[in-house]
């Protein structure tokens, strides 16, 4: 499998009043071409910071201090801001949780999509070519009557429609990678199903690659092919979805899967003891060790490296060393 994006040893920190928040503590994973990858974890695990770091959208007081993000042969962290802007415009697209926040409220949505096309492809915003593409993509994301849709303002849209527009804007430039950060958390379940289906369909139709960031294991199980499980700024486990759900290796992954109610759960739900650590003073060694039932001496001393245990199944745990 060909690697499209390779994140290596990524470290991002935030300077705050309470001290330095070590949000990412050496995150490494690969995204393959045509992957449909899920990044899953709980609040504060660093999944969103990872995507923002890849896009170089970390702002003050945050800072990427170490690591590399190799995308299509180039290290994005070494590009000039101008070159990076081109990557954002054309090669990597991002969809956010609140579609209405990401749309400009005073511009018609047709114009906003046209603007995205014209910057990515260096065409005049008034050209016929651009507007044909606008209507085409609106039809592709399942919005009926694209001509009148293009004339609407964001406040006239429902949450589901707005997210369709965001998907349209994200995919219209035919990016090599689509990053969706909690794309359906603000939507109702029936709309969520529609949107996720749409993303999956369009991504496979356009032969492109997607990275879905979510806290919902159900979405991962149902829509993703591979999954990266993160905990407190580290990658805990990587593998294809079926393997991870069938034979989870990392104690955190095991706990997480057992903690989610599935229709037909009998008996009490199992829980993980303790709470998510404070990333100003994270635990030494493996950040999961204070909550881990299998913690050994070494766990509090050394950060376990991520290791390929079986083909394509990576885990960062001293139990498997």
């Amino acid at each position: 499998m060909e690697v499209l994006l390779s994140v290596k040893n990524l470290r991002t920190i935030f300077h705050t009043y309470r001290g330095v928040v070590k949000a990412l503590n050496g995150v490494s994973f690969d995204v393959y071409k045509k992957d449909f990858l899920g990044i899953v974890g709980e609040t504060g695990c660093g999944k969103s910071v990872t995507s923002l770091s890849i896009m170089r959208l970390i702002e003050e007081p945050g800072e990427i201090v170490e690591g590399s993000v190799v995308f299509d042969g180039r290290d994005l962290l070494k590009l000039s801001e101008e070159e990076m802007q081109k990557v954002r415009a054309k090669e990597i697209s991002m969809i956010f949780q609140e579609p209405k926040m990401a749309l400009n409220p005073v511009l018609k949505i047709g114009f906003q999509i046209a603007e995205a096309i014209s910057t990515a492809e260096d065409l005049s915003i008034k050209s016929k070519e651009v507007w044909e593409k606008v209507y085409e993509i609106l039809r592709a994301v399942g919005l009926p009557d694209p001509e009148s849709m293009a004339e609407k303002y964001p406040h006239e849209l429902s949450g589901g429609m707005a997210q369709r527009i965001m998907i349209a804007m994200g995919l219209v430039t035919k990016p090599k990678l689509l990053i969706a950060d909690e794309p359906t958390s603000a939507l109702d379940v029936t709309i969520q199903a529609q949107i996720l289906h749409l993303i999956k369909e369009l991504v496979s139709e356009m032969d492109t690659t997607a990275m879905i960031i979510t806290h919902n294991l159900g979405i991962v199980a149902e829509y993703c092919e591979r999954v990266v499980i993160m905990y407190a700024g580290n990658v805990a486990e990587i593998g294809d979805v079926k393997t991870i759900f069938k034979e989870p290796l990392h104690p955190y992954t095991k706990g997480l899967i057992k903690a989610v109610p599935v229709i037909g759960t009998k008996g009490k739900l199992q829980t993980i003891k303790g709470i998510v650590p404070d990333l100003v003073n994270p635990p030494s060694g493996c950040r999961f060790h204070p909550r881990c039932e299998h913690a050994m001496d070494i766990c509090s001393k050394e950060l376990p490296p991520i290791k390929e245990v079986k083909t394509g199944h990576f885990v960062a745990c001293h139990l498997y060393n």
């Binding site: 429902s158 589901g160 429609m161 109702d188 379940v189 029936t190 709309i191 969520q192 199903a193 529609q194 996720l196 289906h197 919902n216 294991l217 159900g218 979405i219 991962v220 199980a221 149902e222 829509y223 979805v241 079926k242 759900f245 069938k246 899967i257 989610v260 599935v262 229709i263």
Partner: peptide
Amino acid sequence: VLEAAIPIPDPFFKKEKILPKGEV
């Protein structure tokens, strides 16, 4: 429709494939 739309955290779970139509 509601039952089909809820993502089940179990990749081996087989359920009805109904894609909800339209919006509320």
